[in-house]
Design a protein around this nucleic acid. Structure first.
Lengths: 235, 235, 235, 235
DNA sequence: AATGAATGAGCCTTCATTCAT
DNA sequence: GATGAATGAAGGCTCATTCAT
């Protein structure tokens, strides 16, 4: 309710105030607490989701005071956004989409690399895995963070994939076709991650060791390349 | 994990003299309230998730008393299980997996029918769609309901798909191969549903009208059939 | 922050929900708690102001649960509005502005009655006095409640006073003149209440017993009538 | 009651080695920050009141560190006292009560001058106005500062007014009578300031430009002089 | 059988204050 | 001397659940 309409000065408190809410200064004492909060939050958010995660749980895990999130990030929501950005960057740093391949490598190899990198990224353990879980949650209840993420991180990847597929499809392929094929490729990768609970129940022997993932990558790559080349012929 | 590990509502209390906690008596006024609660809960759970759904919102939407959920189902968690069972039955009733095709139709047609049926089911509106959303949530935080669901509903579908694919792959195909191909097919269907928030942001012009879905089915079917036939040759 | 943009159903919870948030049903069990909350809140708000008043303090004083305010009134602000309305009504009921005088009594008598009633109202003790304190606070930090109060309660009183004064001023008086005279009258009454801390320090022998108030009324009435009549002559 | 009884900040801690908690050294960098803090605090306190004012808002506005208030004044409450003293001195310096009139001018003129000076003072803008707002707050929750204020500043003004009125009332007037008349005069001035929220709502066309204030002064003066002279006759 | 007023634990957030640097 | 990161108590509010009726 608006009973308290007399706070024309709160804009000061909210807009200025915290010294480094915008950018962390690396190396400072502040940055350490910030990092610990982000790491703790990533784990907690991944485990129980945004809503169910309590600031208390996060701060406890980070060894910080209950008010630390407010101080460093403004509120729980802004921390969440920060976490999403952070884990995305960690994941892409550890598993770049090209896996070290040259840009002029044959498209088949580059597609395979893309698929392997994608799978390794979402099946990693620890901090990297959190990002996958967070993204899954975003799919169900998108937050404001998703827009930024799509623009900054996901679209570039989509374009990279698209260009590989256009090479495979040949010059006469339509944009729509390459787009659909791109999604067919990505969908196969995501499936094992997203539907893991069902996959595990249907095929209890399916594990996700490094070797299993290599095999999955092999299948997805050959399945997709076969399909794409065939589609290229039929045009 | 069970639905939500953060509040002690899962006491499995088979307690006290609640009248019809076990089975609804159809036709009674009680059964009517029960049905209305399930329908309302399905909508609300699908919209905002288990945790964010409030018993008040559900009861209001159902035109029932605030205490009705505890009275009829014991607690919010048990209502959720009931909802999951209900929506899944509705969905399979409306869109059977074979879409009326004969069992001896050519495998290409049967695969296409399977894909179309799958897509229509997850892109339906209203009660049917709720099931898809609830299942997405199950993927992230599986509840006890999932085991029953996989055994009763999902495995039969998986086997049906597998048999179609084995026909396409030919007699020399391994079980592993047909399983992987099955998942490649299903994954492409699920992707558009599950990753819709990202798809919509990447390609704002992508809609999901009946016609769009037909086009998707066409792409997924031809992509998959092309891949499978090629794999069959390479064996 | 808007992370949680998925709660399209909360409008239900907020807008329906509480059964009798709009009107208390007198005599019901609910009404009793409501009344106790309002009484307790009036005392606490008057003592420490809206902001400093805590819902805990109010509920404790009312012998109610911490959540009672939310349940019965929605939030602290709505309770405040209710309190303001309630005390205003109590005050006007106990001391009606005409103090039982006939409408055709001589204007001098009616002005004196208005003044006495005004003074008695603001110098009453207990629940009636709270209203005066609350109004003083409203003067400093007006809340949304003030608009309603002016429209519903204060303007009618102002008009009543104005009509008395117009009678005293005679037919040739301007609207502006009667308005200014009205404010001169009211201001003298309010002063003793509002500036009591200063008056008490300047003139420690000034008390506010019933007799003192009668004397004040006598002075204010004769001062004002003398002035008004003189102004009437000078026109 | 002291400013605010709801947080234990009034420990009267004459503690530790803070450098200049007792007296500011003029000219030092320290004194500058002190002054900026007082000015900022005056504005913020006047705007939103003691409780709603946050130390962060004040320090931000003063361009000082969040810890500056504790450092320079001990705590928020002591800063408030400092602010009250400061603003009162500013106000009386700018608008002396006699407005430059000779002491032997006719009492009617001197009364009018008193009234005009009073009105200009309370309707001033900026730092001077803050004092009026703070005084209003003092009326509701007097602090220790009020005693000093009454003794040093208000009583002299009251006596000045009283002597003017005694001249108007004539030699046979009682002390009580002149006192009451004095309060009648002052009350009319204060009313427009103190009840401005109600006045503005009742009469939206009432503004408080310099010209409006002159008109108000004219009315209050003639109203009061008419009354006083009449009372003088009736003795 | 069904209601709805009442409960109390718990959540996020705010804020004056402190203390190591 | 001055800073600002960190603190912890406390506030308003929400919500599933209970229980007297």
């Amino acid at each position: 309710m608006i009973v308290d309409n007399s706070n024309g000065c709160f804009k000061y408190a909210f807009e200025m105030g915290r010294p480094s809410l915008a950018k962390p200064r690396l190396g400072s004492a502040q940055a350490k607490t910030r990092q610990q909060l982000i790491a703790a939050a990533a784990a907690v958010f991944a485990e129980v989701g945004f809503r169910a995660a309590t600031v208390r749980a996060i701060c406890d895990r980070a060894g910080a005071n209950i008010a630390a999130i407010n101080y460093h990030f403004g509120d729980k929501g802004k921390l969440y956004l920060e976490v999403l950005r952070f884990t995305q960057e960690e994941a892409l740093e550890k598993y770049p989409t090209n896996l070290g391949l040259k840009a002029d490598a044959p498209p088949e190899l580059r597609l395979k690399a893309f698929i392997r990198s994608f799978l390794f990224r979402i099946f990693d353990e620890g901090p990297i895995a959190w990002h996958g879980k967070l993204m899954s949650r975003e799919m169900i209840e998108p937050t404001a963070a998703l827009d930024a993420l799509v623009a900054e991180k996901i679209r570039p990847q989509a374009q990279q994939l698209s260009s590989i597929i256009r090479e495979l499809l040949g010059p006469s392929a339509t944009l729509r076709q390459s787009r659909l094929c791109g999604m067919s490729v990505v969908s196969q990768c995501l499936f094992y991650h997203h539907c893991r609970p069902v996959v595990s129940r249907l095929f209890p022997d399916q594990k996700f060791t490094r070797n299993d993932i290599e095999n999955l990558a092999e299948h997805i790559a050959s399945f997709s390349i076969a399909a794409i080349k065939q589609l290229a012929k039929n045009q």
